[in-house]
Amino acid sequence: LGGKELNFSSDVDLMYVFGSADGITSSSSGRTSILQTSHTEYFRELAQTITNALSEVAQEGYLFRVDLNLRPEGKGGDIATSLDTYQHYYATRGETWERMALLKARPIAGDRTLGRRFLSTIATFVHDPLFGLAELEEVKTIKARINKKLATKSPGLRNVKLGIGGIREVEFIVQSLQLAYGSTHQGLHDRHTINALRKLHHHKLISQRDYGHLLAAYIFFRNVEHKLQMVEDRQTHTLPTNPRDFQRCALMMGYYDSEESHAAEQLRHDDDMHAGHVNEIFRNLVLPTHGTVLERGN
């Protein structure tokens, strides 16, 4: 949502922010009764009401699935958090993956002035700390855990978002380079993955070869993602195991049967090719202290 990159059946990642935990909110109940509630409780209830309205299933369906796990402490944290609490949390306990996620933070509703204050508050946490070899290894460790979880949960299945060489690896590459060079290249502060990738290339922070591979792969995988969700009519990122559904997906992607190969075979070939390119770049990603990311081929 923050990067304006929703797919055909996306959920939305939301974080609720309010200005201050100090004070009382008063509201009327009936003609005479005045209810007084702490700001924290009031905004907690308001956030839950909004979340329910977005995600509850009615006769017409629902608006969005809502994911609130990006908030401090994840599922164990408050659904709505004050600005000061966010600031303290990120200053004392914020992690590398949260810096990467917050690159896409964007105020979308409510008090826009407060939204801008939030962005200003998190800017130091996101952009100022060093992002070097240790942080890059942390990102690669996170991805290794994702790979292991997928292999255990869905052995033999191809996930174009979280799988090896998929969308998540493209995003991790782009976000790692944004964090590594963002303090010296202000123009890299872009929420949109393709725009950020183009800016990295413009500043010569990624080679022409890698830029071409990552751009082509990201567009390809996002297109596959859309088509999968159209075929399945649900949120999924896994290529079908049923040959008929796989063929449908390939045809929707624009492939067609020929004397040389079936559409499904062409889709499988291109998925393998793009995944191989992305994973090679991800595994060999380096953050040189001077100059640019080195070319690794023609």
Rank of each mutant, 00 (worst) to 15 (best):
L215D: 06
T289M: 13
Y86S: 07
Q247G: 00
L63V: 14
R117P: 01
G276L: 04
T96L: 08
Q235Y: 03
A180K: 08
E295A: 14
K161Y: 06
T289P: 00
L1T: 13
L119C: 12
G166S: 07
R222H: 08
G297I: 02
D272P: 00
V224W: 11
H290F: 10
D190S: 12
R222F: 10
A275C: 10
K148H: 08
L1A: 13
V139E: 02
K75C: 00
F220V: 01
D67E: 07
F18L: 06
G132Q: 07
L150Y: 06
R71C: 03
L251M: 04
A58F: 05
I122W: 09
A216P: 07
S20C: 06
T92E: 11
G115S: 09
E265S: 14
R71F: 01
D22H: 13
G77C: 03
S207Y: 01
S10W: 05
F246H: 13
H192N: 15
D233S: 09
R31C: 00
T25Y: 13
T32W: 08
I206D: 04
L133N: 04
R234T: 08
A58D: 09
A105G: 10
E295C: 05
I24N: 10
Y42P: 03
L1S: 14
V278Q: 06
T292W: 12
N69F: 00
H202A: 14
K161C: 05
E73H: 07
H274Y: 15
S27G: 12
G212T: 11
I173A: 00
T32L: 10
K199N: 15
S28D: 12
A105V: 07
Y62D: 04
Y211G: 03
D272M: 14
T124Q: 13
L179K: 03
A47H: 03
T184Y: 08
N284D: 14
I79L: 12
E138Y: 08
R234L: 10
A216H: 14
S261R: 15
L102P: 03
W97V: 01
E169K: 05
S10N: 06
A250Q: 01
L102V: 04
R93E: 11
N7W: 01
L228M: 02
H274K: 11
G110K: 07
A123Q: 12
N147R: 15
D13K: 08
R117A: 12
S29A: 11
A275L: 01
L46Q: 13
Q235T: 07
I122T: 09
N52H: 13
G156Y: 02
L205E: 07
